[in-house]
């Protein structure tokens, strides 16, 4: 099938392998050293779970982790709702007044430097005299992550044929039912992926959370950051490993969900 010009060459393999090794090696090393019994990062003192128990006894760190978890779950859910609505509007709404502004506002935060987003949101919260803490960080994260959800869902909607919805409506469904019965099941994998992306982005964010949170309600990245500034600490390795593990679980779950729904989609659409 493939001609000589399209063959996968040794150079292709080399650059691919090197690129992937570059992406993964540091994380692998970080994970391995989280199980190091020695306090010194340089000396391998055998396997141990010491740093994990240290983390589970660190009250301040646990509080921060709990705060981050609540913010991530709440903001991801809000962002998924709003982002999906935005994606539907952009991909099925054709032209409407203010559409360019709308899509601009949704795409800009994807690349906007976080210091700008964080500062501007803080100034808004100060002007509104809102008490800074869980709620303000959640609003800030929702604003950022709904844009990612919108893009993920929109690209899925773009690859779907809108004639399916139209057929459902020709057959007597009202738009809401057509959406729930036809569109929603088809875009569900993208919505799930969007939620997870929003969740991990929120769990990860340092800059915007630093601007928008108040005293006494630090998120996990804020705590980690202040520890990392002082140098490498094995406990941080353990926390990072737990986060990486959590995210890996989420990704595995997501790809299973995608596989399941794909299999269903294939068998349901032999048109």
């Amino acid at each position: 099938m493939a001609s000589a010009t399209n063959k996968f060459s040794g150079f292709n393999l080399f650059s691919l392998a090197l690129g992937l090794a570059f992406l993964y090696l540091p994380i692998v090393i970080l994970v391995i050293y989280s199980f190091n019994a020695s306090r010194l990062v340089t000396v391998w003192g055998g396997w141990s779970l010491r740093w994990y128990s240290e983390f589970f006894n660190d009250r301040a760190m646990l509080d921060a982790a709990w705060m981050s978890f609540r913010v991530a779950a709440t903001s991801a859910t809000l962002a998924t709702l709003l982002g999906t609505l935005a994606a539907v509007a952009l991909s099925r709404g054709r032209r409407f007044k203010g559409r360019a502004l709308f899509s601009g506002m949704l795409y800009a935060p994807l690349v906007m430097p976080e210091v700008i987003t964080g500062l501007s949101l803080l100034l808004l919260f100060v002007a509104l005299d809102a008490e800074r803490g869980f709620r303000t960080v959640t609003v800030a994260h929702t604003t950022l992550t709904m844009c990612f959800v919108a893009v993920v869902v929109q690209s899925r909607l773009g690859s779907l044929d809108s004639s399916l919805e139209e057929a459902a409506m020709d057959l007597g469904c009202d738009p809401a039912r057509a959406f729930l019965a036809v569109t929603l099941p088809l875009i569900l994998p993208a919505i799930v992926a969007g939620w997870m992306l929003a969740f991990t982005l929120s769990l990860d964010d340092l800059v915007i959370a630093s601007f928008t949170t108040g005293p006494g309600s630090a998120t996990l990245p804020i705590r980690i950051y202040s520890e990392v500034r002082l140098g490498v600490k094995p406990e941080i390795n353990a926390i990072c490993t737990l986060i990486v593990g959590l995210i890996a679980l989420l990704i595995i779950a997501a790809s299973f969900a995608a596989k399941l729904s794909n299999a269903r989609g294939d068998s349901a659409a032999p048109l």
């Binding site: 509007a89 099925r92 709404g93 709308f102 949704l106 604003t143 709904m146 139209e166 409506m169």
Partner: peptide, 27 residues
């Protein structure tokens, strides 16, 4: 023909207001 267009536009309202309030106004 009944199309999806108008209800899809209505879907824009909530995210639109949210982004105006929390992205545009802060600038």
């Amino acid at each position: 023909r009944r199309t999806f267009t108008r209800p899809a536009r209505l879907a824009a309202i909530a995210p639109y207001l949210w982004m105006v309030l929390f992205f545009l106004v802060p600038f």
